[in-house]
């Protein structure tokens, strides 16, 4: 099967046409095109059906999309019944979404951001930014290569391949690292801003606002996002200053 490198590159734009109709579907179809080229010659009818299936509804974390792409393309080459390929695709949405979101958005990303923010607050400057970009991208490119390779090798057995892989074990470890590093970074970042101001009043003020923000977040849940609370607090501050004048 040719076109793996092209498919891999296209996976980095898998959310290019993200929409409420098919979510990642069009992006997966776009990434599948080079992989399905050989099928066009071998079995044009099957190729046409495979193209239709490749762009149907699909959603998962973009970093693990290669697993679904590889598995469904392998299933097409193995002449699995079309309905079975569609079922495989549907069945992969939830696990790849949940695992990928936990691994990347709630794990690796906050862990590396926490490390970078702590390093910045400790005076490394721009090197922390460069380090963050290099480490994150090395990991996620490696994951993308692994995911496509594993999917292409496993085909219909991709579920077992995912279960036996490093991903389920890595999720809680990366999550714990994220908790530790974010927790470590926050006091350092606060000190980085507050130390130059040099007043206890500033520290107390910031702590009070931060406390109120956390309490508001707990009370109002998802409706009270961080940015909403900030904008309300800014409006109240401006009002208070206006009245005080």
């Amino acid at each position: 099967m040719n076109g793996r490198a092209h498919a891999l590159l296209r996976l980095f734009a898998v959310q290019g046409a993200w929409n409420y109709e098919r979510m990642l579907g069009v992006g997966i179809g776009y990434a599948a095109e080079p992989l399905l080229e050989d099928l066009k010659v071998a079995d044009p009818v099957r190729h046409s059906e495979a193209v239709v299936r490749s762009a149907e509804f699909f959603n998962c974390n973009p970093n693990l999309a290669g697993l679904a792409l590889g598995a469904t393309v392998r299933a097409e080459y193995d002449a699995a019944p079309g309905a079975q390929v569609a079922r495989l695709r549907a069945a992969l949405c939830s696990p790849l979404g949940a695992l990928g979101d936990q691994l990347f958005w709630a794990g690796l990303l906050p862990a590396l951001v926490g490390a970078a923010l702590a390093a910045l607050a400790l005076g490394t400057g721009g090197r922390a930014v460069v380090g963050f970009l290099v480490v994150y991208n090395l990991i996620r490119v490696w994951v993308a290569v692994w995911a496509l390779k594993t999917g292409l090798a496993a085909g219909m057995g991709v579920g077992s391949a995912i279960g036996a892989s490093w991903i389920p074990r890595a999720v809680p470890r990366v999550g714990n690292a994220a908790g530790l590093l974010i927790g470590f970074a926050l006091p350092l970042v606060a000190a980085w801003y507050l130390r130059p101001l040099g007043t206890i009043r500033a520290v107390v003020g910031v702590c009070l606002v931060a406390g109120a923000g956390v309490v508001a977040g707990r009370l109002f849940g998802a409706r009270m996002t961080g940015s909403r609370f900030a904008l309300i607090a800014v409006a109240l501050t401006l009002l208070f200053r206006l009245v005080a004048r």
Binding site: P110, Y193, V209, A210, G217, G226, A233, V234, R241
Partner: peptide
Amino acid sequence: TAVALTLVVLGAGLAAALGGALRS
């Protein structure tokens, strides 16, 4: 007012990050 805004937004930012970490 400018310094007060800076402190308020910093406090709100810390609350947002901590709230997000607690939720995760």
